[in-house]
Design a protein around this nucleic acid. Sequence first.
RNA 1: GGCGGCGUACCCAAGUGGCUAAGGGAGAGGUCUGCAAAACCUUUAUGCGCCGGUUCAAAUCCGGCCGCCGCCUCCA
Length: 485
Amino acid sequence: MRIYNTLTGKKEDFIPVNEGSVGMYACGVTVYDNCHVGHARSAIVFDVIKSYLNYRGFKVSYVRNFTDIDDKIINRAKEEGISWDEVAQKYTEEYYADMDALGVSRADLEPKATDHIPEMIEIIVDLIEKGYAYDVDGDVFFEVSKFDGYGKLSKRDMKDMMAGARVDVDERKKSPMDFALWKSSKEGEPSWESPWGPGRPGWHIECSAMSKKHLGESFDIHGGGADLIFPHHENEIAQSEAYTGKDFAKYWVHNGFITIDKEKMSKSLGNFFTIKEILDKFDPEVLRVFLLSTHYRSPIEFSDMILRETEALLDRFYSTLMRIDDFISKNSSGSGQTGETETFKKVLERFEDRFREAMDDDFNTALAIGHIYEVIREVNRYIDSKPSGDDATELLNDAVGALRVATEVLNVFNRTPKEWYVALMRSHGIPLTEDDIDNKIEMRRDARSRKDWDQADIIRDELLRSGVILEDRPDKTVWKIKIGN
RNA sequence: GGCGGCGUACCCAAGUGGCUAAGGGAGAGGUCUGCAAAACCUUUAUGCGCCGGUUCAAAUCCGGCCGCCGCCUCCA
């Protein structure tokens, strides 16, 4: 297995610190607002990585934190006229609602910053003792120049950064690059007792404290969005390695951004969509598949058009699944293998290897999905070749089983066709019930049996205008939801 | 300014030295169908931003140029 490591800038063979087990920490969210699709990408990427590592037989400990104290939370509390912890509580719940919808599983541990204040203070005290940090008027700063490796993750050196440093620097810092480990709090702000007076932790220290507590001083994978490389992850390395004297995380994994009109989607630019906004119009699985159909390190351009294409992609999968179900339910006995049988078998046999190869190569979900669709095409080709008998049923069941291995790891394509179409009916806002549609199909069946084609077409057109497609099979008529405009 | 990345068909996208450049969408033609839809078949890059170089062999490595983007500030 190979993983791209931001620290070395290369794909490396994955060799965990302790054989057979993996400690993984991904930076979660600051709970001060609803999540946008950028947060969804990060969450889904690490969800799949965790799931794949499990599939590969590793015992995974996955930690994803919540930053539940921060300036933005405090500001938000003021705006909404509620307390900071109510803000954190509210948006933690919203986070779970969004992530549950997207099929993101819970991490093994989901620690909160405010539950680890003593651990953070312990590290800060030690860093001061060791000469890596200094306190001024109740604030504590990490002195970047004391840590030799500073800049090794983000590949920049102190000189360059000085040149680009911002003007509004805190005058009390020894260097503009120094960052806060502890911030004194103003009157009325949330605070915790500390050796430096009442205050709250700086942003970076929580991850050092929580990863150490739950995964140990050195662990395997640390991840997050690419915008966390500097300064957040760089600062984590400085704090943690200065404190323990050991290597911190071995592999640094960063997901790319979502862009709109080629620009990074971000809060500050205002060009973002919340997950909730997207889920008003699209099924959550569409968003998940969309985010996995590009390699996790590449930027993804976000648009309605591409989501509609993804919807069509998913529909192709579920349509095929429906054909398989159909075929199996009315398959006659006997043995009627066809010229396609051998090719179909071959594609099935090598599918899991190809899936694994793709995922082993830095979690190439896009390629993995491509392989899934090769199987889909083969399934259709096979059914078109009109096989029959128990062997055919068994082969198609094998196909479903082979696909399931992959679809469970990715946690996509796991519903029944029926569930998919019912979900689409909702996300497309089609004001019909399944019974409504079944009644129309019944009426049309009568018309067709009278060879009243005009009446049959009227019914079909009427449903089509509502977004429902009818497909006539030899023995029955099935319905689907129309994709696209 | 410093550092990093990207540029593959009409669109999205995989591919980082060697089989006919995955997969999806869109378009065209065909098979099937009462007509459709779906599915399948054929078709759409002798070509991978441009120009050189290395090599028996390059989308893939090296150099230059052009274009786009990101980080350097809270940010997934």
